[in-house]
Design a protein around this nucleic acid. Sequence first.
DNA 1: GGAAATCTACTCGGATACCGCGTGTCCGAGTTATGGTGG
DNA 2: CCACCATAACTCGGACACGCGGTATCCGAGTAGATTTCC
Lengths: 175, 175
Amino acid sequence: MAHFGSSVEYGLHCLLWLVGPLAEPASSRDLAELQGVSPSFVAKILPKLEKAGIVRASEGVRGGYRLAAFPSEITVLAVVDAIEGKKPLFDCREIRGRCALFRGRAPAWSTDGVCAIHAVMLRADQSMRNELGHTTVADLAKTVARKAPPSFGGEIRNWLVGRATARAERAPRRS
Amino acid sequence: MAHFGSSVEYGLHCLLWLVGPLAEPASSRDLAELQGVSPSFVAKILPKLEKAGIVRASEGVRGGYRLAAFPSEITVLAVVDAIEGKKPLFDCREIRGRCALFRGRAPAWSTDGVCAIHAVMLRADQSMRNELGHTTVADLAKTVARKAPPSFGGEIRNWLVGRATARAERAPRRS
DNA sequence: GGAAATCTACTCGGATACCGCGTGTCCGAGTTATGGTGG
DNA sequence: CCACCATAACTCGGACACGCGGTATCCGAGTAGATTTCC
């Protein structure tokens, strides 16, 4: 098991598909089926990104999601915090003040300042967040684009609009 | 909720009490009651530290735990890994190869190398582990000792041996 | 008096329940494009 | 020909189960020490 759940992974991958000038917003179902993951689950992740101001949702039959900022302004840290809820690395319970010798009256010297163990964890947490905060969605997209063939972006766009038109044709109001 | 569970906290606090030249090993029950936490729970954490070679257990009626190495050689990272099991920060599921356009045949360029998202997570994980690996139990103990009054170490030792003798007197073979 | 046997209490260690969060799914409210209709 | 309207499908968003890991607890096997007993 890992510290970050799969929601973070899905969320980041969805954002990668939203990079670049999309003609129309991409719905959560399209994003899910494009990646071969559960649409219901993706539909629960994207609203979190919207509340955090990372994506912007359009409603209605041709609605969907767009990025709410430039990819270079969306850090991986912001995405993780939006989905996981800013959970700290460590939750100090102030064990140091419960020593049996104190008999319930913890002296001031024992509880002053930050617990030594907590301090290490805070440094490690800060170090991790610093690394995540220095990488943006634009960096990720650049790495991906460097590997994919040049035509790939167009193929993705075609697939998305092809889905939209296929739906329109499959469900005509009257034949 | 935090990424590290309370087991890590208990384990590190227990190790802090074991720093310094103890006359006798400290049992898990003594360590638990000294800190005012559940003895049953502490008794489940310490064996993990023993398997990792961090503490060494003595059996029998006067048994208990001692450090298996110098405090300056026990890193916080080793303790965390021993208790939590080296769980990675991120578990990449290779979503990039599931793109619907590939129809199950992921091209080589899409799966070569390390996933961009995974790479960021690996850097962050490494950064965190680096910070945890640079702090030792000796560092923690030094910080605590700087705040506690000089007599505190002796009081702890007295409390521990006092418990042992109290047990011996409370349970005499014959009154 | 000394040594061996026994016995007890205490220790570790693992196997066992309970709980909460994360994962995954489903259904309802709202909105937009569309096709029909009337002027 | 144009504007309006009713319809229907699709969208988001939140409320509902399932499973698993973590938390907390208990009990059994094993051992060191102390007492008793025998020589």
